Computed example of a mutant assay.
Amino acid sequence: MTVASDSLKIAFSPCPNDTFVFHAWVHGLVPDAPKLEVTYADIDITNRLASDGSNKLDVLKISYAALPWVLDDYALIPCGGALGRGCGPLVLTNGGSSNPASLKGRRVAVPSDRSTAYLLFRLWAAQLVPGGVGEIVVMPFHEIMPAVRDGLVDAGLVIHEARFTYPSYGLTMLADLGSWWESDTGLPIPLGAIIARRSLDLAAITRWTQASVEHAWKHPQLSQAYVMQHAQEMDPQVAQAHIDLYVNDFTGSLSGSGYAAVTSLLTRAAEEGLVPAVDPAKLLLP
């Protein structure tokens, strides 16, 4: 396995946690690492790119929920991603009942149907919404809270900085799916994964990714301008809260509990018919 050239093509989101993690590598601050040619795209787009056999990307940040469709071609890199506690998606409504069963037959907006947020929502609903929810409406995540506020949908599944901003839309949290998952399993929440083509030097990519993470932690001020450049007019305090929430020990190393969380999520989702079954051995580097 080799790195085929002096550069790698990578795709990750413009969200603060991703730009924070990859700042050092993107800016040539990781010794001996090849240059990165970066595509910035929201995770629903990178999920699709990873499963598109014609794409020429070497490394991507995708949702853990998308892994079952890409593991033949891509390996899970055990660092750089997003797992954690207290950082799960929320189910929001515009007031009304606080009983999850009130969502029976209702229209719910989600940011992607191949996201960890969506899998958590469906697993939660299978337990707590007898008869199931109604229509699932996929829309860009920044449109979800206005749609709930304006009554275009009955509830919305939100991610990222919406955890901090939903009260400004006058919305109510019906459920914190992260809290539900942690209570139900005792495991962290698997959100975003770094993957790389199996034909590449996966040990080297892991090493460079870890070095980029460690540089970001040691020199956080160096990445601030880059983070804010891509933060889509986000308030700097919200951007920092985003980094604090999603960049943690699991970003440095997936570890045993991280692998257990990923295995549990994908196994339970496969049992519900939401994803193809995955051999846990394929989650490990060869």
Rank of each mutant, 00 (worst) to 15 (best):
S255G: 12
W208G: 11
E233L: 09
L222T: 09
Y226G: 14
E214C: 06
G256A: 08
G256K: 04
P220V: 03
S253V: 02
T206N: 14
G252V: 06
H215V: 00
K218S: 12
K218I: 00
M228C: 11
A211K: 11
Q221G: 11
S212Q: 03
T209R: 11
G252T: 04
A260T: 08
D235E: 09
L245I: 04
T206Y: 07
I243Y: 13
V238N: 04
H215W: 13
L254C: 09
Q224Y: 13
V262L: 01
A216R: 05
H230V: 01
T251D: 02
G258F: 00
Q240N: 07
A261R: 01
D244M: 05
S212N: 08
L222G: 06
I205M: 07
V227Q: 12
Q224K: 15
I205F: 09
A260Y: 01
H219A: 02
Q237L: 09
S223Q: 13
H219V: 00
E233R: 14
Y226H: 15
S257M: 01
H219E: 03
H230E: 05
E214K: 14
H219P: 00
T206F: 07
Y246E: 01
R207Y: 10
V213E: 02
V262P: 07
W208A: 08
F250M: 00
G252R: 14
Q210V: 11
W217C: 07
G256W: 01
A225S: 14
V238C: 03
A241Q: 13
S223T: 12
L254P: 11
D244V: 04
Q229C: 05
L254M: 12
F250L: 00
W208P: 13
S223I: 07
P236A: 10
V227E: 12
T251F: 07
H215L: 05
S253L: 06
Q229M: 07
A261L: 01
G252P: 12
M228E: 07
G252H: 08
P220D: 06
E214F: 09
Q232D: 13
N248P: 08
